[in-house]
Design a protein around this nucleic acid. Sequence first.
DNA 1: CATAAGTTTCAGAAATTTCTGAAATTTCAG
DNA 2: CTGAAATTTCAGAAATTTCTGAAACTTATG
Lengths: 190, 190
Amino acid sequence: MNLPPLIQSFVLHFGEMGSRWGINRTVGQIYALLYASSGPLCADDIVEALAISRSNVSMSLRELQAWNLVILRHIPGDRRDFFTTPDDVWQILRTLAEERKKREVDPTLSVLRELLMQKPGNEQERYAQSRLAEMNALIEQLTNWYDDVKRLDTERLATLLSLGAKVTKLLDAKDRIVSIGRKRTEPGKP
Amino acid sequence: MNLPPLIQSFVLHFGEMGSRWGINRTVGQIYALLYASSGPLCADDIVEALAISRSNVSMSLRELQAWNLVILRHIPGDRRDFFTTPDDVWQILRTLAEERKKREVDPTLSVLRELLMQKPGNEQERYAQSRLAEMNALIEQLTNWYDDVKRLDTERLATLLSLGAKVTKLLDAKDRIVSIGRKRTEPGKP
DNA sequence: CATAAGTTTCAGAAATTTCTGAAATTTCAG
DNA sequence: CTGAAATTTCAGAAATTTCTGAAACTTATG
């Protein structure tokens, strides 16, 4: 591997983290390299930069494409495939969220729903089902929130994030206004 | 494995998903079993239920404890350790979020900060650093939001989730009010 | 249509992770 | 202190995942 030290550190870190993120080392390294490079790279550039086999690069790029994390580019007059990551980090975040949900959450949600349809055979199953129902309700609440929030444009999303817990202040303010409104029309009620 | 079919399906699913969630099959199965059981189980209960070796159970329980996902219980007059999961699924969610952040995000944040301190040696490194800065800024925005929101009590958190993107309507309403306020004092300005 | 440049596939090698059984250690009652 | 009950550790076996090199395939071009 013959990369500038800063880029090499970044690439190696992504490789090491790969296993914690559910991807493998090579996939992590390739992604990091593409992310930190100013222009698109072809497979042989990656082979040279990371000192791994050509076929490993091919398989790993295929996996990154399955994740929608890389963009395939063509340079006029060149038959080779070139790859980059999207420029916009918010777009990357959205893709990552969507793909992780698809792989890590949706299958469980579908199993939970299926198991909740079954008739429990005994007390033990009845209890288990009540637990699955709790888990199902929580995941549905989270995914509903996600489905809603992901439609926001990036500017609003960023505003929302910056506010953090302060949005609850707004909610409280709204509640007070509503409550005052009610006081006017129904005096004596809280 | 001799479990009621419903529980068995749940346990096997968690085992299979384990690898996608960054834990291994046994750990996933044990967690699922504890989650769906109405009372605490001891290691030998787990050995019997899942048909795996005693030592594997011991190691896996140790890992679940490292994740803070199980609670160690003692039954008076019994020397064995018994395990359960917390009853409150929101509490489980909080623990999961905290531990995943610790393992999957914090190390990267610390590497990014370190690499951003370095002086770039050439144009290629200068560009890479600008990309790392973008990534760092995004992750910091997300973790700041998380640190803020995680302090909310569960009721407010649930309210916030139910609102979803509708909170932006509140923001817009606030903006309009502020804007009207400004119009009154500085007429002609937007 | 022959060929050269490029890509993908895949069987098996290499590396890593998971799991087990046996031995070591801990803990507590008598 | 002794020993029985329980847990933990750990070396190596088993299983799984990752990686490679060779061969197969694809596609554009002279």
